[in-house]
Design a protein around this nucleic acid. Structure first.
Length: 587
RNA sequence: GCGCCCGUAGCUCAGACGGACAGAGCAUCGGAUUUCUAAUCCGACGGCCGUGGGUUCGAGUCCCUCCGGGCGCGCCA
């Protein structure tokens, strides 16, 4: 039933472990360096000897030669490792290619759709992502948190963690007083009914415009929020309507990205808990009074502390976030990490949050997964100043441009099918444009960059996957799932038929998928998966142009290649799914 | 002023934990289609890795200086 149990470890992982064990045994190095050698070497892994040479007072070249010779003499016949070869201070490790290829095939064959995933760990990671303010639509600014967060969730799940995704909505604070005031002044029920969020944005913009000529509106807004805080029924009813409409709007938009939150949590629900927490921390001496406010010191030097309570006695975002962190730890235990996928501009907040949690007895649990800012060519995004690109508009444009291209490339495709293809290609392009680069980089929003359809882009990967599917579709019915036809004992004969370099390179790369997943999880870096998939698609394209599948010279070769194509399609689809990108049936 | 981040080819980016000649895409130029979808493939062009020092057998990668850009800096979220 659970096929994962059948195999202990992926072949590249066990090869790596074998080498690591050998090196640590030889040099007593607890964390030995095992790396990927240059392609031309033909080796699978390499061990640099330089640092050991220094300790042993030998030249690296001599040491590598000596160790390689010793290791070679200790090799048993029939093992995965066939020889060690000294090369300028490195020891290159060669594996039995046949055996390696067979093992990769066996791994894929045994796990199918689960290939690349790992067994369940007893650890939970909580991921905070998207987390917008209510009463404003999602902009391209929220795009990054949402898709990076979702990709990380998928990656960590694949790596075996229990993962909980939380959308933490900001629905509390003085800004909502502004909105309450504005709605009472200028609100229009009909307009709100028709387009709730659009109307709220208009009111928000109008409030700030009026504020310029009438500064006393600030006080009006504060009063409105005070009444909300004190449980004023009218205010509360209106605020709940804003919130409900906002959530509906958000969920509709993120659904287009294939995102669905495990939980929607509201900041306002932590107002009371924050008060209780602060009282406790005051008792314990972790929090202290300062200039009328309550603070938690988070640094030895003069970095600002975490302000937990204002001098008027009310809580702030920081303390509500802290209370929510405690709640996450208790509700989902055993929690090993709280990840916050939030832009780098909030760095200070998370430094403080992490330090506060450390003082509360949770060192290292809070990790800010920060990413660079998105700005527009005209400057920083600002809803108030109308300098904004809404996420829905971006996705609409993505689909529109994709549809144009489908029409051009594939004019005979019926319209309903074309729309589906355009959706997947357009949205995929947007997601991939972001996830294919390191999160930390700032992005200046650019339509043509976001919506690249060739080169290193989602459509390139999708196209590769579609080609795989199409070949299989044209095969005989009994060949369509070659892995089903293929018994474990047939695998050696199948691998026998894989002789071209394009074929071997492709299969070898398939074997590295589990490592890509693992590295991406360890580094919280979706772009590692993206980079892996791009290379895979490149290898597939090369194979595709060089090696005929359906017209292979003999039946066994044909079946072997079909199995390879099937496996490649599987991994492409799986990897893209991890990034949150779907593959269309045709393109 | 203090703190955090970024700076690699004309443009957009990979090169995590120091290691074998710095790799892609786009753009430009040239080639490939009687063959499973050319949204493809092959080739060419293109780099004092911002600057100057330091550590090291070895630095795009680590430390310091400076330059350029972004962000933040007690009672906003």
């Amino acid at each position: 039933m659970n096929q994962k149990k059948k195999r202990a470890s992926y072949v590249f992982n066990s090869l790596y472990d074998q080498i690591e064990l050998l090196v640590s045994g030889e040099f007593g190095d607890a964390n030995p360096e095992v790396r990927r050698p240059p392609k031309e070497s033909g080796a699978q892994f390499a061990v640099p000897c330089f640092r050991y040479a220094k300790v042993k007072k030998e030249t690296p070249v001599m040491l590598a030669e000596k160790i390689a010779e010793r290791w070679n003499s200790g090799l048993k016949a029939g093992g995965l490792i066939t020889r060690f070869e000294p090369a300028g201070g490195y020891i290159n490790v060669f594996a039995d290619q046949r055996m390696l290829l067979e093992e990769i095939f066996k791994d894929i064959n045994a796990l199918g759709e689960d290939y690349g995933t790992y067994r369940q760990k007893e650890e939970t990671i909580v991921v905070d992502y998207c987390s917008p303010n209510i009463a404003k639509p999602l902009t391209v600014g929220h795009l990054r948190s949402t898709i990076i967060g979702q990709a990380l969730i998928n990656i960590l799940k694949a790596r075996g963690y229990e993962v909980v995704g939380i959308n933490f909505l900001s629905d509390w604070g003085t800004q909502f007083g502004k909105l309450l005031y504005a709605f009472n002044q200028w609100g229009d029920e009909n307009l709100f009914e028709k387009d709730p969020i659009g109307h709220l944005v208009d009111l928000y913009v109008r409030f700030h415009a009026e504020l310029d000529v009438n500064p006393s509106l600030e006080d009006e807004a504060r009063d409105c929020f005070k009444r909300l805080e004190q449980g004023g029924e009218e205010e509360r009813a209106l605020w709940l309507r804003f919130r409900k409409a906002s959530l509906a709007d958000f969920e509709e938009t993120v659904a287009r990205l294939g995102v669905c939150f495990d939980y929607n949590w509201y900041e306002s629900d932590f107002e009371k808990k924050a008060h209780e927490l602060i009282d406790r921390l005051l008792d314990e001496g972790i929090a202290e009074r300062s200039q009328g406010a309550v603070i938690i010191t988070t640094s030895d030097d003069d970095n600002p502390p975490l302000v937990a309570k204002k001098s008027d006695g009310t809580t702030l975002y920081a303390s509500r976030d802290l209370a929510s962190a405690i709640e996450r730890i208790e509700k989902f235990k055993p929690v090993t990490k709280l990840l916050y996928v939030v832009a780098t501009e909030q760095n200070l907040h998370f430094v403080n949050l992490a330090k506060a949690l450390e003082r509360l007895g949770f060192p290292g649990i809070c990790q800010h997964i920060r990413f660079g800012m998105v700005s527009l060519p005209s400057g920083k995004i600002s809803t108030r100043e109308g300098r904004v690109v809404y996420l829905d508009d971006l996705l609409d444009e993505a689909e529109r441009r994709a549809e144009e291209i489908v029409k051009e490339k594939n004019p005979d495709m019926p319209e309903d099918k074309r729309a589906q293809v355009a959706r997947r290609v357009g949205i995929g392009a947007v997601i991939y444009a972001d996830l294919s680069q390191d999160r930390i980089k700032d992005i200046t929003f650019d339509w043509s960059k976001m919506l690249a359809f060739d080169g290193n882009s989602a459509p390139y990967l999708q196209y590769a996957a579609v080609r795989c599917a199409k070949i299989l579709e044209k095969a005989e019915p009994e060949e369509q799932n070659p892995m089903k036809v293929l018994k474990e004992e047939d695998i050696p004969a199948t691998v026998d038929k894989m002789t071209e370099p394009e074929t071997i390179d492709l299969l070898l790369h398939l074997g590295r998928f589990p490592q890509a997943v693992s590295e991406a999880a360890q580094r919280y870096a979706p772009h590692v998966v993206a980079g892996y998939l791009y290379e895979l698609a490149t290898l597939l394209s090369r194979f595709y142009t060089q090696v005929p599948v359906l017209k292979a010279s003999d039946e066994n070769t044909r079946l072997a290649r079909l199995a390879l194509v099937h496996s490649t399609g599987l991994v492409l689809r799986k990897g893209l799914a991890i990034l949150g990108i779907r593959v269309p049936v045709e393109m």
